[in-house]
Amino acid sequence: METLTRPKLREGLEVIRGMDDHPLLYDASSGIYHRLSRSAAGLVQRLDGSRSLDDIAGLMAARGTKTPEAARTELDRFVKNLYDSGLLDGSPTPQRARDAGRRGRRNQMMPRFVVSRTLLPRLLEPLAAVLRKMPGGALAGGHIAGGVVGTVLAVWALLAGPSADPKLAHWTTLLALVLFLGQIVLHEAAHAMVAQFLKVPVRGFGFALLFYFMPLAYVDRTDAYRLRSRASRVVLALAGPVNDGWVAGLTALVATTADGTVATVAATMLVFQLLSVITNLNPLLPSDGYAALEAGMGTVDARGRAFGLLKHTLLHRPLPSHLAALTPAARRLHLAYGALCTLYVLVLAYVAVVGTVFSYGSVQGMWGR
């Protein structure tokens, strides 16, 4: 096959330096980033269609410690991976790249639907330009400190403050839920604001269905891979939960100082808000907490590798090269993480089913009376 005899990268591919100064191969047609080793980054520059695989293997052997045969074996594996990923001229485009630009797509068990790709960057840039004149570390530190204090206040208010008035619960719960949906929008806007400040604007915003049934707002922060600093990526990932802490703190103040309907709505909102903080920081879900942990450790798609390794192990299938390259210790760690995530999702599903059955039985009992 000529594609694999004299390989040539597709048009629209760019080698850049991103996270932790690692080289990345950016595919402009799909918006996907492919992480490269430092040796692979130099190798892809030679894939211009003018050299045969034997020529390239000879150069690899001359500049390294491998024999020509070992260099050719490694090169064949690398070129085959590029071909399977749709990155070479003449290679078929993989399904995930074809789906990347569609309005609805799957990502970690979440179909996503884009509302707008340009509105948030246009709205946020004027404020971001002003904030960039201030010390970034001080802004991040103040924001995080306020979010932590707000969360502590919310816990205190929920435990020590007045409880919701059951006489008003039939409609105040609905009102609290509507207000909480507005907070979710603010959560995503916080992510978008930090991304705009760091000059990696979000690609769009919309809504997603976590596990195909739980509605969530989201912003596309894919270009965060361009950020070299781990600290910047962690701050970007935590911007939403930290903002939730600020809003929860304000809600706590209302719940403890107001009375009547306002206090009841605020007390109900505190429950939603604290559950949201716990969920968003849970590393067993595709959450902001998981994204922050991944950014802080410098890893990429740990969940994807864990589930892929778990699937191939259970089905006794040969491992793809990127999983086969894991050390035995890393393989055991990924398997344990994948098993924990799977068990957690099963427990959530069980609780959701039991809760639904219980609610249905309660409604039936009420109607029966």
Rank of each mutant, 00 (worst) to 15 (best):
L120I: 03
L120E: 13
Q183K: 07
V148E: 04
L175W: 05
F113T: 06
A192D: 11
E188R: 08
F207R: 01
L139D: 09
W156F: 12
A138M: 14
V202H: 00
L177V: 06
A140P: 00
R112P: 00
R203T: 00
R112Q: 15
A129I: 02
K199T: 03
V152F: 05
K199I: 00
D165V: 04
F197P: 00
A157P: 11
V149H: 10
V194R: 03
F180L: 06
I144F: 10
A140W: 10
P126K: 07
W156M: 08
G161E: 02
Q108R: 14
G136T: 07
P121C: 08
R106L: 12
L179N: 15
G147V: 04
A154E: 11
L168I: 02
G147T: 03
W171L: 03
V149Y: 05
L210F: 11
G206Y: 11
S163K: 12
E125H: 13
P135M: 12
A192H: 02
V148K: 07
V202M: 01
F207L: 09
Q183E: 12
V194N: 08
M214G: 00
G206V: 07
A129S: 07
K133S: 09
F207H: 10
L186G: 09
P201M: 02
L209R: 13
A190G: 07
P162G: 02
L158T: 13
G161H: 08
L127A: 08
L153S: 02
P111K: 06
Q183L: 06
M110Q: 01
G146F: 04
K199D: 11
L177D: 12
L216H: 12
L175S: 12
L119H: 10
K167I: 04
M193Q: 09
F213H: 15
E188K: 01
V200R: 15
H170Y: 14
H170M: 09
V115G: 08
L216V: 06
Q183P: 01
V149D: 02
V178G: 13
A164M: 06
L159C: 07
V200W: 14
L124E: 07
A154S: 12
S116A: 09
K167E: 09
D220A: 10
G150Q: 01
G161N: 07
A128W: 14
L131Y: 12
D220M: 03
